[in-house]
């Protein structure tokens, strides 16, 4: 897949590139409005990350331009402003998703995959990882072709882990993904352990491998190794 990152904060753009390096994307980065405009009129992209606040212009204009010249390209807005400011604006203009800074790289990675799945694999939204199969459209999970019953949260956690396989995901990022943006107010985050434990048990009980590893209480990793 071909990604375009439009982000004036160079260090942040580099982090995104580094984090998504193993996903086999072709990534191009531009740091301002002018370059972004040139790029989107020159080349085709599958997904674009657009920072709304660029030094020389508003990302909102880039979104409307993208919708015109490349209607197939998925758009994820990344902005320092939050939902109360301009989430509506970005989404109204046709962005697929919206992330507020500071975000978890894992969350961004999962969102990119989700946007690409929705845009390019319509009808066959299936993720296969060894014996595990996820039907993202119906939110169903099969292990060795047998359906396992997961709770809403367990499903979200599993999909999040698999979208970021071989990456250490912090408890914070997992909770924010499954419980929502405001969950950072929870304080104690250890309750996520119970959900991970149940999830692992349901998969192994159905004959699946134990792929979810804990990392010294910091977070979890889904790895086939």
């Amino acid at each position: 897949m071909k990604l375009l990152i439009i982000e004036d904060e160079i260090d942040l753009a580099k982090s995104i590139v580094e984090f998504t390096a193993k996903e086999n994307h072709i990534i191009e980065v531009v740091y301002n409005f002018k370059e972004a405009k040139e790029k989107i009129n020159l080349q085709e992209y599958d997904c674009a990350l657009v920072d709304l606040m660029l030094p020389d212009g508003s990302g909102l204009n880039i979104i409307s331009e993208l919708k015109k010249v490349q209607p197939k390209c998925g758009i994820i807005v990344i902005s320092a402003k939050n939902s109360i400011d301009d989430k509506i604006d970005g989404l109204n203009l046709g962005a697929d998703d919206y992330l507020t800074k500071p975000f978890h790289l894992a969350e961004l990675n999962a969102r990119i995959k989700s946007v690409i799945r929705r845009r390019f694999f319509e009808g066959s939204n299936t993720i296969n990882v060894n014996e595990i199969q996820i039907e993202t459209e119906k939110r169903e999970v099969f292990v060795n072709k047998t359906k396992i019953e997961l709770t809403h949260r367990e499903y979200d956690i599993l999909l999040f882990l698999i979208s970021n396989s071989d990456k250490v995901l912090t408890k914070e990022s997992i909770i924010e993904h499954a419980w929502g943006e405001n969950s950072n107010a929870f304080g104690n985050l250890d309750f996520v352990y119970t959900h991970i434990k149940n999830l692992r048990k349901k998969i192994t009980d159905a004959g699946g491998g134990d792929y979810i590893h804990s990392l010294y209480g910091v977070g979890y990793k889904f790895s086939l190794k």
Partner: peptide
């Protein structure tokens, strides 16, 4: 807002380190 950008960068670097 400036701080949010800085926090974003630090957060992303810490997540990368964790890998």
């Amino acid at each position: 807002h400036e701080l949010q950008t800085i926090v974003s960068v630090i957060k992303s670097k810490l997540e990368l380190l964790l890998q």
